[in-house]
């Protein structure tokens, strides 16, 4: 095409590949086409520096940026039985699972962690869209139950980042049953009087939206995230008309009263700290890197954090 793609980039790639650098040093923004250098992109939490488009981010990268000093302890999630339906489409389900595990380096589509944000102890769960579309199967259900149980045990708020195409078809009805199952988990949290904050990220659709992702005390979305039950293509086929601009996007939902806030990723952490501290009856967070004043809630929280 031109000398940059034909000559310079292969050269750069060959130089870096020898040093075992990440394969894709450059990422093209799907929205504006800007080429973004990987370090620049990860510093901006996978938000395009050109147009502000929010790209996907793995739970691990998100937690590293969210928790104080990037320190968090993973909450263990009970492993469900393998392939309960012996599901097979063009590929066997276990093969698809293994491929997803290999490409993401993760066990499954949700990561649960505990730690502190702005010295506020929390439990957090994040869904991984890069793992089979973040789909909700029994593992994700187990992860939500584990997250809620841990939050109740430690008396901490739960912050959940959703991202999913919906339920995992390969687990059939058992994936659908994660809707009531996750709802029970959220109820445990609410009955314990603990805040449940949902951050809806692109995309959150189907059975996920129609269960735990819409039951938060506070519902925040990242800009331009697609949030829906039925996807826009299905709706267009059903009603046979063009959908309005921005339909089912975060800002549209905000306008229709379905969300509390739309918050850019860069400001999300501060906002989550402020909200959780207010809901938990804690004094305002200390800005900057100053050591936190000795507060009564600090000691037990730190002790709790080292538990397995």
């Amino acid at each position: 095409m031109n000398w940059i793609t034909n000559y310079v980039r292969p050269r750069i790639n060959s130089i870096f590949s020898r040093r075992e650098m990440p394969e894709n040093l450059w990422t093209k923004c799907d929205e504006c086409g800007t080429m973004l250098f990987h370090r620049e992109l990860s510093d901006a939490l996978n938000v395009c520096t050109g147009c502000g488009h929010h790209m996907g981010i793995t739970p691990r990268a998100r937690f590293e940026a969210l928790f104080d000093g990037g320190v968090f302890a993973e909450v263990s999630v009970p492993k469900p039985i393998d392939d309960p339906l012996k599901f097979r489409d063009q590929k066997k389900y276990p093969e698809r699972l293994r491929a997803a595990q290999k490409s993401t380096g993760e066990t499954e589509a949700m990561l649960v962690a505990e730690g502190e944000i702005g010295r506020t102890p929390i439990v957090a769960a994040a869904q991984d869209f890069s793992f089979m579309g973040g789909s909700m199967g029994m593992y994700v259900g187990n992860a939500i139950v584990a997250a809620c149980e841990r939050a109740v045990a430690l008396k901490r708020p739960l912050i959940l980042f959703s991202a999913a195409g919906g339920a995992r078809m390969q687990e059939g009805i058992l994936s659908l049953m994660q809707m009531p199952r996750s709802t029970v988990a959220v109820q445990m949290l609410k009955e314990a009087g603990l805040p449940y904050i949902v951050v809806l990220t692109h995309p959150t659709t189907g059975g996920v939206t129609a269960s735990y992702a819409m039951l938060g005390d506070i519902q925040i979305a990242e800009p331009n995230a697609l949030i829906c039950f039925a996807g826009p293509r299905v709706i267009e086929q059903t009603i046979r008309e063009k959908l309005p601009e921005g339909f089912q996007r975060a800002e549209y939902l905000l306008d229709h009263g379905m969300l509390d806030r739309v918050t850019p990723r860069a400001q999300l952490r501060d906002e989550l700290i402020a909200i959780t501290r207010m809901l938990m009856g804690l004094p305002p967070a200390v800005a900057g890197d100053l050591p936190a004043p000795d507060s009564p809630e600090k000691a037990p929280a730190e002790k709790a954090a080292v538990q397995p």
Binding site: T183, T209, A210, S211, M214, F229, I235, T238
Partner: peptide, 20 residues
């Protein structure tokens, strides 16, 4: 129902609340 109005009025939230 996968319709425009149904989505605007919060189909997913309504289902979630009914299950709840």
């Amino acid at each position: 129902y996968p319709g425009k109005g149904a989505e605007e009025r919060g189909q997913s939230e309504a289902i979630a609340r009914s299950t709840e």
